[in-house]
């Protein structure tokens, strides 16, 4: 199915851009007329995905994050968030609840939150090459609400 509309943003992996990314994704998703809960879910998943790039992908340098959002005629919102960073050696481990390499200030719940808030969610990563997470969120048609 071809998207109705799409957008791509590239920005430096700075923490100040976490808010920018989720607000941009929410503004784009607004074309599908989502409910507040649906919009909250999208912002939450985007925030987790972008934070992972910022906290984990580039330990020694300031890299960039690419966020691509698409909307489809059947009411699906789809986004992918990619970095060209260190990658994840063991994705299964990274997805375990409470597992974190980020220290006591991180909960280790990022992947758990993404999985529970998205309708579908995939992670692809190659050590040394980078990581891409992709998710979809179905926006309910207004007539059915």
């Amino acid at each position: 199915m071809r998207p109705i509309n799409e957008m791509t943003l590239t920005f430096p992996a700075r923490s100040v851009n976490e808010g920018f990314a989720r607000l941009s994704a929410a503004a784009f998703a607004a074309q599908l007329d989502p409910t507040m809960d649906e919009l909250g879910d999208i912002k939450t998943v985007i925030s987790e995905a972008v934070t992972n790039c910022i906290v984990h992908a580039y330990p020694d340098a300031l890299g960039s994050v690419r966020m691509r959002c698409r909307i489809y005629p059947d009411g699906r919102f789809e986004a992918s968030v990619s970095d060209g960073g260190v990658g994840i050696a063991d994705i299964e481990k990274a997805r375990e609840p409470m597992f974190s390499t980020g220290g006591a200030e991180r909960s280790g719940m990022g992947f758990t939150i993404m999985e529970s808030f998205a309708d579908s969610f995939t992670v692809r990563s190659r050590p040394g090459k980078g990581t891409t997470v992709r998710f979809t969120k179905r926006i309910s048609p207004r007539a059915k609400r």
């Binding site: 987790e48 991180r106 719940m109 990022g110």
Partner: peptide, 11 residues
């Protein structure tokens, strides 16, 4: 708004 950062803050 909060994401999982809020979980660590509350804990």
């Amino acid at each position: 708004f909060t994401d999982s950062s809020g979980i660590a803050v509350l804990l």
